[in-house]
């Protein structure tokens, strides 16, 4: 069981170190993509066929426990945001945030339609 938690901790810390080092190298002095590196490390480790311990039952159970704790943690995170000041904040901020997010949704929509068409064309070719 401890192997699973320790692997998670290792990936977390190494990811943060990499992210911070990258931040210092680029002069931003904050963590750049630390969790991203952590996720990548975790995927690399658990996809490796050489590391047999990641397929053991105890490892699976402990990591799966933290995996299911994810949604409760997000709910706690939502409950500790500054929602009140956002509601009473400036209109410009509301417009800027709303415009940005809906434009991004629109881009995803366009791209997914493009992808679907491409896949359909590929299928036609195969037929």
């Amino acid at each position: 069981m401890i192997y699973g938690v320790a692997t998670l901790a290792g990936c977390y810390l190494l990811g943060k170190i990499l992210g911070t080092a990258l931040g210092m190298a680029t002069g931003i002095n904050s963590d750049i993509g630390g969790v991203g590196f952590g996720i990548l490390l975790m995927i690399l480790l658990t996809n490796s066929k050489k590391l047999k311990f990641t397929q053991k039952d105890g490892f699976k159970k402990s990591v799966t426990f933290w995996k299911t704790m994810y949604i409760p943690v997000v709910v706690a995170m939502a409950a500790s945001q500054n929602v009140f000041s956002m509601m009473s904040g400036g209109l410009v901020a509301i417009v800027a945030g709303t415009a940005a997010v809906f434009f991004a949704f629109f881009l995803v929509f366009l791209l997914s339609r493009h992808e679907q068409k491409k896949e359909a064309m590929q299928k036609e070719k195969e037929d």
Binding site: Y12, V35, I39, M42, L44, W66, M69, V73
Partner: peptide, 23 residues
């Protein structure tokens, strides 16, 4: 709630959620 939903546990559980992801 601030501890439970803080950056440490959030990032830790996100990394755990990567378990089972396909390279």
């Amino acid at each position: 709630l601030g501890v439970m939903g803080g950056a440490l546990l959030r990032d830790f559980t996100i990394i755990a959620s990567a378990y089972g992801a396909d390279l």
